[in-house]
């Protein structure tokens, strides 16, 4: 079964990314993604830019409303996601527990419709 691990973290509490390479994952995170890949369960995933770059849109009565900022202004924000293919939810949870994001923030584990 495929599961999406949504990684929520407090952006303000994040360690400042390396100035010269802000797009780079932390070594711990890179190792985690590598372990997923080596185990043959990684389907995909991405890291998102901070919510200050987010734009929100919805159409109300046929008119588009575009707003600066994230969908919900919460303390912890979606910072990235991973999609993994594992036998069951227990296995998904044990992999979620290994994600460095789980020690710093919160992981939401959601099964994907297939």
């Amino acid at each position: 079964m495929k599961y999406m691990l949504c990684i929520y973290v407090d952006e303000s509490a994040q360690p400042a990314a390396a100035v010269d390479a802000p797009h780079q994952m932390s070594p711990a995170f890179a190792a985690y993604v590598e372990a997923l890949r080596e185990s043959g369960i990684l389907v995909g995933g991405d890291r998102l830019k901070p919510t200050e770059t987010a734009t929100t849109l919805r159409v109300v009565d046929g008119e588009a409303q575009v707003l600066d900022g994230p969908y919900a202004d919460t303390k912890e924000q979606l910072a990235g996601y991973l999609v993994i293919d594992v036998p069951d939810i227990d296995s998904a949870l044990s992999w979620a527990a290994r994600c460095p994001g789980a020690s710093r923030g919160t992981l939401e584990v959601r099964p994907i419709w297939e």
Binding site: P27, A28, A31, E34, A97, R98, S103
Partner: peptide, 22 residues
């Protein structure tokens, strides 16, 4: 091998320790 161990660890402190060794 250290990378793999780090990726499999759930404990932040152990992760840091392995990182230092690496």
């Amino acid at each position: 091998a250290y990378a793999r161990a780090i990726g499999l660890e759930t404990d932040e402190a152990v992760r840091r320790f392995l990182q230092q060794r690496r």
